[in-house]
Design a protein around this nucleic acid. Structure first.
Lengths: 124, 124
DNA sequence: ACAAGTACGCGACAATTGTCGCACGATGTC
DNA sequence: GACATCGTGCGACAATTGTCGCGTACTTGT
């Protein structure tokens, strides 16, 4: 049950959930609205659509709706990168890890994990 | 007068024009339709929109409309990659050239040129 | 001169994406 | 209890993208 790829505006929300595993719509909004200039409605709607796509899930926490990412950070990033490489640059083989150094959202360990994914997903 | 970024379906057409500087709608179609499964109409419409965006230009060649890319291959690819890196991986600095090795559409010289672009566009 | 094939201008439609607003019910406050 | 809030469900709209088809004018073989 592969989930769809996040659209550009969905990505920031996903990232927020990757850094904090559980957030309410309001919290998500406060984190992201600043740089995006969205209204709370936009944030909520985007969240809705992300549920439809299977990117996140909702859970009732003390009567409040909190969201959780349901796709893995590393594999999602790996897949997106792989697709980009294929579609835009037409690189089929494995990408070198060096491509990711400098990323502000990936730790050392994550970098290694990512690398592993890129090598594996090879066949696909 | 910066031109917009090509959408996914526009990219293959652009690539075709980068490899052969002048092509008619029909020729473009024959090159691309195969893998995309489009009808000629789709190809033409996509071409139309690319003109609107300033990605390509049309010229009357012996009474036939031929298309030419009006955006540069290297800088376009560099910009797209840069954007991807920033938006998805949050890498701001220059990307290492190694990220592009393996690309089937870039020659050695182009790789070097690309590298230069990535370093320059820094400020932006 | 006519039929068949092309090229081209345009309009059309559904799906996806970006953004909101409104109405309603639950909650907390004086 | 009346009111101001907040969280939610949902509907709405414009722009972009992916795909076509139609009608018309033009070229060309027989």
């Amino acid at each position: 049950m592969e989930s769809m790829q996040p659209s550009p505006s969905e990505l920031p929300l996903l990232k927020a959930l990757w850094s904090k595993p559980q957030l309410s719509a309001r919290e998500l909004h406060d984190q992201v609205a600043g740089e995006l200039g969205w209204s709370l409605s936009s944030t909520r709607k985007t969240l809705d659509r992300m549920i439809d796509k299977g990117l996140i899930t909702v859970h009732d926490q003390h009567g409040l709706r909190v969201y959780r990412a349901s796709v893995d950070k590393i594999s999602t990033l790996a897949e997106m990168t792989r697709q980009f490489a294929r579609a835009v640059l037409e690189i089929d083989g494995p990408l070198p890890a060096s491509s990711f150094t400098g990323s502000k959202i990936l730790s050392h360990e994550e970098l290694e994990e990512l690398q592993k994914f890129l090598d594996e997903e090879e066949g696909k």
